[in-house]
């Protein structure tokens, strides 16, 4: 009975870490708080020099309006560019016409907390704040797996 109680009290589940990043407008964004909005969230790690990242973001951009209407999802793209390269992020995202929320992680704080080693790396967080899917690398068609985890 004690063991059953213990299993119910301590829940091993993947959730977002308590890390705060800045977006490209200088606003602070608490990452753990993104999982408490009651809506699904996609976190996509990228770098300005990463071609597969650009392919993935372009593919998601094509279907983003449809996902927003159907699932209420918000896509946050997290730049892993360091030092002076971080200033290239806003021009790249806006210049490509993408509507994603852009976060800057030049210190690698969120990357280390989520063990992101290579980009692109994408996480899907459901409306309960649980990480329900992640993939590393991008092959064409990977974006089609995502809606199944947004419901």
């Amino acid at each position: 009975m004690l063991l059953l109680t213990l299993c119910g009290v301590w829940q091993i589940q993947a959730s977002l870490p308590e890390v705060t990043l800045q977006d490209i407008d200088g606003n602070s964004v608490n990452i753990a708080g993104l999982g408490k909005t009651g809506h699904p969230v996609i976190l996509s790690f990228f770098a300005t020099w990463c071609k597969p990242c650009m392919q993935e973001l372009e593919a998601i951009d094509e279907v983003y309006p449809e996902w927003q209407d159907e699932y209420g999802v918000t896509v946050y793209v997290v730049s892993t560019d360091r030092a002076q390269d971080a200033h290239k992020v806003a021009p790249l995202v806006r210049g490509n016409g993408w509507d994603f929320r852009v976060l800057l992680d030049p210190n690698g704080t969120l990357q280390r907390a989520l063990n992101v080693k290579n980009v692109p790396h994408l996480f899907v967080i459901n409306s309960k704040g649980e990480i329900v899917y992640q993939h590393n690398a991008y092959l064409p068609g990977d974006e089609e797996k995502i809606p199944g985890y947004l419901q």
């Binding site: 109680t5 119910g8 301590w10 091993i12 589940q13 959730s15 063990n115 080693k117």
Partner: peptide, 24 residues
């Protein structure tokens, strides 16, 4: 003892433990 332990643990019911890792 058992009741005290259960009450203490249930107070921590909102706690979450997450194990993360990576192999490369």
């Amino acid at each position: 003892f058992i009741v005290t332990l259960l009450v203490s643990l249930s107070v921590a019911a909102k706690d979450t433990v997450v194990v993360r890792g990576a192999i490369q």
